[in-house]
Design a protein around this nucleic acid. Structure first.
Length: 501
RNA sequence: GCCCCCAUAGUGCAGCGGCCUAGCACACCACUCUUUCACGGUGGUAGCACGGGUUCGAAUCCCGUUGGGGGUACCA
């Protein structure tokens, strides 16, 4: 089967999470059948066009790895096609010109609603142009059959039947010569040989319009696939008040593309067994229309975080490093959109980190990654968590300062310095070094009457500046003798200042 | 108002008439590991919206109710 699917966003703002899920489904379907995936930009509403939106869509899809075989194709550059078919419909008696004003239309709707009748155009211009001329501004409407039903099968939900009378004589071509979605998508899906139209549930109710259009044009309709919507935690349509719905925010947080694809795929689809953490290849292999579910799904960011963590843990050290670099670059380019003052700060932080990250010995870098990878998801956390491992100078976390304020701390640090200075760090294997360091530190601690946390915590805050982090002895082993002793010395000085005051 | 869709734990899914005293995962709670935060391990709380049918048998099929969602534009 030659499958061709498309993703057809309109450039009216930031790419929405729900939209991305549809892109993912559409792409997965095409790749599963080794078919083609087309990117089409539905820019037929000139009033809602947002500059930069197309770039964001393209960047987002690239990032996600949902590559397309054709496009981007802009509908705004294909007006002649829509006009041509509109004319054909006009000639065949399937369409007519309408001169009704928006005011009249609004009034009509209000009356219909008040009377408890279904809303819809009253077909005032359908049989009679009322002496209006084609030179006057007008739209072209589709002449819906006024009897019978439109029956169709959705690949996800099965049979549907809609009464034709209740269908509107919808506008196909606007007064400005641009088509509406209904006309444009039907014409394009046909001309582009799209076999499966994947679009979310909200389109079901206008599907009869599209099918009547296909019918009037003498075309066969593609397979319709309507996955469910994605809802916010309160079960209403996912929107800004539910947190972020802008896809780019997830990119900026440093989620992994494979993890996001995995998570998206699971929003309204399942492989049928209980698999959850899946690679891109596994998803492509397993994807099917049968696995698409009918009920709406709620976006659960905790699950995203978990899946992201699972994918992160499966990354090699080198791949994780590549992700860190990619993330930095991405944040740098995105910083352009920030307000001036924030941008400066963001960029300088990134720059400083990058310099430190690049400046260290590759082996050291790799060891820090090994230490932090599993706890730094999304990747943005890595910058924060690993900062002090690269910085030569850093502030102590407020919460840990209590260990330095202790007046016996300077003495403790001094003894530790001596003991660790006298220790051979180079010869033992890594595991042995951990044990050795632990033994040394515990014995110094015991010699000054310290126990448990009082032994460990002062060393952690001194060597890493933080109260939390990896196993202390592993951290020390990674930092190495010189850094550790230097840091103990600094902590001792700081401690003297603090306990003196 | 009118039209349409959906309905398994808090969340995401499995289930497609008997294998279901309903399975998996996230979240949550314990315990465990432990120097901290995570990870890991073990266990636990929690669900077939309700009411009628059909059937020897229903989470699974049908109808209704309720609840939720979508559409109702010269927006997509």
């Amino acid at each position: 089967m030659n499958v061709r699917t498309r993703f057809a966003p309109s450039p009216t703002g930031s790419m929405h999470i729900g939209n991305v899920r549809n892109a993912a489904f559409s792409w997965l379907l095409a790749r599963h059948f080794e078919g083609e995936f087309v990117l089409r930009i539905e820019d037929t509403d000139r009033t809602r066009y947002v500059p930069g939106a197309v770039e964001e869509i393209i960047e987002g899809l690239r990032w996600l790895g949902t590559d397309w075989d054709e496009g981007p194709i802009y509908q705004s550059s294909r007006l002649k096609h829509y006009q041509e078919y509109a004319q054909k419909l006009l000639d065949g008696g399937h369409a007519y010109c309408c001169w009704c004003s928006p005011e009249r239309l609004a009034e009509m709707r209000e009356e219909q609603q008040k009377a408890g009748r279904p809303t819809g155009y009253d077909r005032y211009c359908r049989e009679d142009s009322h002496g209006r001329s084609l030179d006057e501004p007008h739209v072209i409407r589709f002449a819906m059959p006024t009897q019978g039903t439109t029956v169709f099968t959705d690949a996800v939900r099965g049979e549907f039947s809609f009464d034709n009378v209740l269908q509107d004589d919808f506008v196909m071509l606007k007064a400005d010569g641009y088509p509406t979605y209904h006309l444009a998508s039907v014409v394009d899906d046909y001309l582009m040989n799209i076999t499966h139209v994947v679009r979310s549930e909200e389109w079901i109710s206008s599907t009869p319009k599209h099918l009547q259009l296909y019918h009037a044009l003498g075309w066969q309709a593609p397979t319709l696939v309507h996955p469910p919507l994605i809802l916010g935690p309160d079960r209403s349509k996912l929107s800004k008040r539910h947190g972020s719905v802008a896809f780019k925010d997830y990119i900026e947080h440093g989620y992994l593309p494979d993890a996001v694809l995995n998570f998206m795929a699971l929003l309204g689809w399942s492989p049928g067994d209980n698999r959850e953490v899946m690679t891109r290849e596994e998803l492509t292999e397993a994807f099917s229309i049968e696995g698409i579910v009918k009920h709406p799904a709620i976006f659960d960011i905790q699950k995203l975080d978990w899946i992201n963590q699972q994918h992160t843990n499966r990354l090699s050290n080198e791949d994780y490093e590549a992700e860190v670099r990619r993330h930095i670059r991405l944040c740098e380019t995105h910083a352009d959109k920030l307000p001036e003052n924030e941008r400066e700060e963001k960029l300088s932080v990134l720059k400083r980190f990058e310099e430190m990250f690049d400046g260290v010995d590759p082996d050291y870098r790799s060891e820090v990654i090994a230490l932090m990878q599993s706890r730094s998801t999304p990747v943005a956390d890595f910058i924060d968590y690993s900062w002090n491992y690269f910085a030569t100078d850093f502030d102590y976390e407020e919460k840990g300062l209590k260990w330095l304020r202790d007046e016996t701390a300077p003495g403790y640090y001094e003894k530790l310095e001596a003991a660790l200075e006298a220790t051979d760090w180079a010869s033992p294997a890594r595991e042995e070094l951990h044990a050795l360091l632990e033994e040394q530190i515990r014995s110094v601690g015991a010699s000054v009457g310290r126990e448990g946390g009082a032994v460990i915590h002062p060393v952690r805050i001194a060597s890493t500046g933080r109260t939390v982090g990896p196993s202390l002895f592993e951290a020390l082993a990674v930092l190495g003798k010189d850094r550790v002793i230097e840091r103990l010395r600094k902590a001792r000085q700081k401690s003297r200042e603090l306990s003196a005051s």
